[in-house]
């Protein structure tokens, strides 16, 4: 692989979820930490779509926030185009323009008091890319690029439907001419027919502008549709990384298999969903060893005390002790 656009190495994020100091003293409790991400490493090549899937508590949004500099990592490094961006000084301005983010909730991601034109032009003005007149023209042009009309610059966000707002958010993300866009659940707040429009739009824009996407989603079918490579997160750890569609035909990690089995079957193939045993453990006190072991059908002794390390598989890599035990599964 050529030099990756984004390289993440050993990324870890802990949150202090302790009670206030006084309560801790009175109730004699220790400080408590929630490990949102532990030792996550992956690379994203130029022009590809890398997706992170996981259920709630898997820490997928935390990774997105660390990548765009909204949260500092507790450990590990993030390298964008060869330059570290996890420095304490924040992301260098010259790099910042080159990546953008699209958020989940199009009703919260646009300032309700601003006109659409101002919203879209905000990155242009912040980075000083154009004079105000050109910025306004550019905003109108971008609205047409995302399938709205240029006259919409004077409207307010509340005049638009959810799907239209997400288009506006995409136009804003495009306005600084980025190469890399982090998409945090871009369609999970939208209806399916609108979701299809937005996913198609994202693909068109990727082709047109050569964009690289980091897609965060809990929806496996969306991920399958969009991604070249997929990382599966469970309780903050990357359990499997695989080439796009292969993950769905030959999943390696038992959790991936479980997730796939749980997806509702629209094709009516008669396959009965296999309900999964148990629920996701509390991330404040995750199980020792492999975090998935209490729910895993392939669990053995080693899983209970040793954290599995990622190892190569035919379709990518996976972190599971069962892979060592000569394909008995």
């Amino acid at each position: 692989m050529a030099e990756p656009l984004l390289k993440i190495d050993g990324l870890t994020r802990r949150f202090d979820v302790s009670k206030p100091w006084l309560n801790r003293v009175i109730e004699r409790e220790e400080k408590q930490f929630l490990t949102a991400n532990a030792d996550v490493s992956f690379e994203i090549a130029r022009g590809e779509t890398f997706a992170l899937v996981g259920e709630s508590g898997s820490g997928k949004s935390t990774i997105a926030k660390m990548v765009v500099g909204l949260l500092p990592p507790s450990a590990g490094t993030i390298t964008f185009d060869g330059q570290r961006i996890d420095t304490s000084a924040g992301i260098p301005r010259s790099l910042r323009r080159r990546f953008q983010m699209i958020f989940q909730d199009p009703f919260a991601s646009l300032n309700p008091r601003w006109r659409v034109g101002e919203i879209i032009a905000e990155p242009i003005r912040t980075f000083g890319l154009m004079n105000p007149t050109d910025a306004r023209k550019e905003a109108a042009r971008l609205l047409e690029v995302v399938g709205l009309s240029a006259g919409d610059v004077n409207k307010f966000p509340h005049e638009f439907s959810g799907g239209q707002r997400q288009r506006i958010a995409i136009a804003r993300a495009l306005s600084s001419k980025p190469e890399f866009i982090v998409c945090d659940e871009p369609t999970s707040a939208l209806d399916v027919s609108v979701q299809a429009q937005i996913l198609n739009l994202m693909r068109d824009l990727q082709d047109e502008f050569g964009l690289t996407y980091l897609l965060i989603s809990h929806d496996l079918s969306v991920v399958r549709h969009m991604a070249n490579r997929i990382g599966v997160l469970y309780l903050g750890r990357l359990v499997e990384v695989a080439q796009g569609k292969k993950l769905f035909t030959e999943p390696q990690h038992p959790y991936t298999r479980m997730l796939l089995d749980a997806v509702p079957d629209l094709a009516l193939s008669g396959r009965r969903r296999r309900p999964v045993e148990g629920e996701i453990p509390n991330p404040i006190s995750p199980p020792p060893g492999c975090a998935f072991h209490p729910r895993c059908p392939l669990v053995h002794d080693r899983c209970r005390h040793e954290v599995p390390q990622p190892q190569p598989t035919p379709i990518g890599q996976a972190a599971c002790h069962a892979l060592d035990r000569v394909d008995t599964a």
């Binding site: 926030k65 924040g90 910042r96 919260a108 646009l110 905000e122």
Partner: peptide, 21 residues
């Protein structure tokens, strides 16, 4: 809210986020 995060992602000045957003 996400609109404030969007402004932070592009590195808008905190004073601007506070007073304009």
């Amino acid at each position: 809210k996400e609109y404030v995060q969007a402004a932070r992602v592009i590195g808008a000045h905190p004073a601007k986020i506070m007073f304009r957003h």
